[in-house]
Every structure is written in C-alpha cells, then in structure tokens.
Design a protein around this nucleic acid. Structure first.
Lengths: 126, 126, 126, 126
DNA sequence: GTGGTCTAGACCACG
DNA sequence: GTGGTCTAGACCACT
C-alpha cells in the first residue's frame, strides 16, 4: 500500500505523507478507515516508529487523519478544501521550476498540458 | 536580475541556477552574453563566493554556460534539447506532488491546466 | 447529558470529570442526586468501564461525588470552596498560555475580558 | 532567558515554544533578532537537540521565527494576527475548564476578571 | 494494544 | 558553523 524509495533525497516521512494522501485521493482509503498503527507501519516499512509518527502528526495537523487516544489512527471524516493564497504561490514557484526543465528538454506547451492532464487524471477516480 | 529568497528552503545555489536558466529562456541572456564573475555576483547578492561557484559549476556541467580562463563566463553557444527519459520521470513524480496539493485545495483539472499554461507562457517569449 | 469528543487530545476520563462538574455547577445535578453506575455510563458513552471508573475515582477524591456501597453513586452533600494557592498558580500558568494565544490572534484586553465573562456567565445559573 | 520546568507534564518542546512566544510578546525578542542555535540551546537547557529542533520547527510553522540555511534562526519580520474561528473555539473550551476550577474555589466573576486582566497586562508592554 | 515524548547519538546538505 | 533527518531504543498516559 505504501511504497518507499529509500534512495530518494525526499525524506521518508514526507513520502509517507504523500502516499497516504494519494491513497485518500484515489479513494483506496475512505473517511473512517483505519490506517496502520505507528509501530505496525514502522515494522512493515523497516523504519523506526519515530519517522512514522512524524508523518502521522503532520497528516493530523493537515486534518487528513484523526487519532483517537489508545484506539488508533483513522482517515478524517471531512477533508475541507481551503484554497490558501500563500500556498498556491509556493506551488506556482515549484511548478515553474519543473516546467522550465521540461521546456529545456523541448516540451511544447501542448506536450506539457498533456503531461499534466495525464498525471491529474491518473491521480483520481473522477 | 537575480532575486534570491534567503528564507526559502530551496538552497541559494539552486535558486541562482534557476534564475539564470530563466533569464536564458526569456532571452534576457543570449548565447555569448557575459555573466558576472563569481566574486562580483557574490558581492551583489551578499552571499559567499563558494555558493555562486557551486551554481556556476552546475550550470557549466549542464552546458548552459562556458567559462573561458582569463576572459570570464558566458552563456553557451547552443543549448541542446535532449529529452531524458529518466529525468522526465523524476519531474513527473514532483509534478504529481504539486498537483496533489492543488487538488486537495479544490483545483479542478481545468483550473490546473489554466495555471500551468499561465506559468508556461509567462516563462517564455513565445 | 454528557458529551464526549473522542477525537480530542483531552483524555476521555477527564472529559467525564469536567462534564459532571459542569452539570453540578449549572445545578442540573444537585446534592444527593444519583448519577449512573459505572457500567451504565460506559454503555451509554460506548467506552470501557475502566475509563468511567477512573473518572468517578477522581471525582470522589475531589469530594464531588460519593459512592455508597450497594446503593450507587451520588452528588456529594456539600461541596466546599477551598481556595488552594498552589492550584491557583497552576491555573494562572495555563490561563497565561491561552491568553497568549488569544493575544497573538489580535485579541485586545477588552475582547479577552468579554470572552471570559461570557464563558463564566454561561457556566452558571447566577 | 528560557526557563523550563522539567517536572511539568507539559512537554519540554511546548514549554520552549511558549517561552519564546512570551519573549516576543514582551518585546525582549524583536523581529530580526537571532535566537540560539539548536545545539546551543540544547546544551544550555541540558536537553537533546532533537527536542529543541521540534520546538523551532513548530515555531517556524507558525511563522514566529524564520530559519536561514546555514546561518541560523531569527524572529520573523512580521507576525500576522489572523483570528482563526476553530482555534478560538478550542481555546474557549480550555478556558471554560480553568474558569470552572476557579469558580469551584469560590472565585466570583469580578475576581476572575481581575485575575485575567492581571495576567494579560503582565504579558505585554502595552 | 495505542500514540506522544524524549534521549543520545549519527549523517547530511548548506553557507 | 547551521538546521534537517533518522536510528534504536526508552518511558509515559490512555483505552
């Protein structure tokens, strides 16, 4: 369910966050579903519990998951869509970096759009 | 010409690389144009020369610039477009991360496409 | 009568203690009134009896309730007001934390006082 | 400058967060001021660097401080006051808990207001 | 059983 | 020098 790239420079805890978000978006994980306990996932991924805990805490901060004391961790009931101007700006900057790389490799506007649409559609059930 | 965000988590040297590439793409910098020496740029940006040197080294490796001993540093004659499968894959992964964030903020496919087209067009003279 | 927030970081048993105290203060519960047995309340709140028992023990220690073997549990006859210097100090510390958060959100002194008065008045029959 | 209560049940990293916020509010720390490095503060407080790092990361998330790569950590330039409905509700709940305790010790409305005003005024320069 | 916190180290990239 | 990440444990409170 969660695949890590241990060689990646992207921190493991961020990879976990992303994978779970992706699973939620693809509706493999639905509101109320339990996700593995910190220790269980740590064993499964062969990492230390602290790293999983860090990921879970960030996900809880983002209200993607909810922890119930002594019970476990669950996908949050309602995930609110709140557009955040500041965050969009950051994302735009990062997108620019990537689009620039593509453009330098000869990607035209249409090719870029096709690529983006492909990624977007693959990401959801819509 | 080069604007740095010292608070950003993106390394300064990467920001320099990116800004110079952007200038090339917007044709503010054309093949053969001189770019400031390491020391001069370091002074201008109020950073240490080592950081600028690191950026220039990487740009030279990517054949965006050329250093001619005793003369200075220049934008490379011809920048070749070489689509690199591996690199595209990496970019796709990073794009997915960003698109996911947008989707979680309520961005529809069309909104994402608009955003991307906007960034792409702003990036070039086309 | 007792509402729990299972997602809250505040322990369930503490929530029970607080809710019962609140009921006493609002005079929904008066000296001599019976309160549900541990098992009954546990069933009602869908939690384990141990958690309810823990709450009742603490309430008994604070002389808010009294357990009469074979009869049940009741609101204590007279609840004494004993100002406890040490406890007030602890409360002040915690209040400071909360007031600081409010201040950082732009709450002026008057706004804070209004808020506090509102909470206080809502809490009692006065 | 930062005093910890090692016996407190309040996590050390939260105590650090609070103390720094307090210092900012009292204007002992002003925008642009450097705060001790993770290692330095850890040595000073005789705790491990990880705990300090956790506090600093949370403060950065709240935009109270800013870290500049390889340089250090500084008080943020502008601290924005953004009232957050949800957060206020949480604070109200916690305030209710504390006010209830006070009321049970015989504190009248006026006494509570005096206490709160005292804490608020002590907290700032205003 | 659960998650939260903390220790005492380590390694890394950055400037 | 700086902060960020991670390990491999430990202890705690809660259910």
């Amino acid at each position: 369910m969660i695949l890590l790239d241990y060689k990646s420079s992207k921190p493991i805890y961020e990879q976990i966050i992303e994978q779970i978000k992706l699973n939620v978006m693809k509706q493999y994980l639905k509101p109320g579903d339990a996700i593995p306990s910190v220790r269980k996932l740590a064993l499964e991924l062969e990492i230390t519990p602290g790293t999983v805990a860090k990921a879970y805490q960030e996900l809880e901060r983002q209200q993607i998951i909810e922890t119930i004391r002594g019970k476990g961790t669950f996908i949050a009931g309602e995930i609110e869509l709140k557009p955040d101007e500041k965050k969009v700006l950051e994302i735009k900057k990062r997108l620019q970096t990537e689009l620039m790389e593509l453009k330098m490799m000869g990607y035209s506007k249409n090719m870029v759009v096709d690529l983006v649409v492909g990624i977007y559609e693959e990401m959801c059930v819509c």
